[in-house]
Amino acid sequence: MDDKIIICFCEDITRAEVRQTIKNGATTLDEIKRIIRCGMGPCQGKTCEEMICREIMDITGKKKEDILIPTRRPPTSSILLADAARSDNNEKTS
């Protein structure tokens, strides 16, 4: 597979960069995220996580069930700050 292929679309991270980061010793999704930012963008890892998981398995020999999934946090998908400000539990939903 071409190493120039983009794995993280939000942050423009290539497969080669992901593989190098793993080889440098970051073998968990959380550590990789904090070094090259994949998973920090608007998709919050929904696009790239599976692919990075496969790279970790390939390089380290870890099993998939041994690779921890990063904490899921709100919002489920990105929302406008102004919309979050408008939401009010006293308002009736239309």
Binding site: P42, P75, I79, L81, A82
Partner: peptide
């Protein structure tokens, strides 16, 4: 979001991706 939208209004048009 309410505070930020009030004090720094243009930030209301940005999308929150994570807390």
């Amino acid at each position: 979001s309410k505070k930020i939208n009030h004090v720094l209004p243009p930030l209301g048009q940005l999308r929150i991706v994570r807390q």
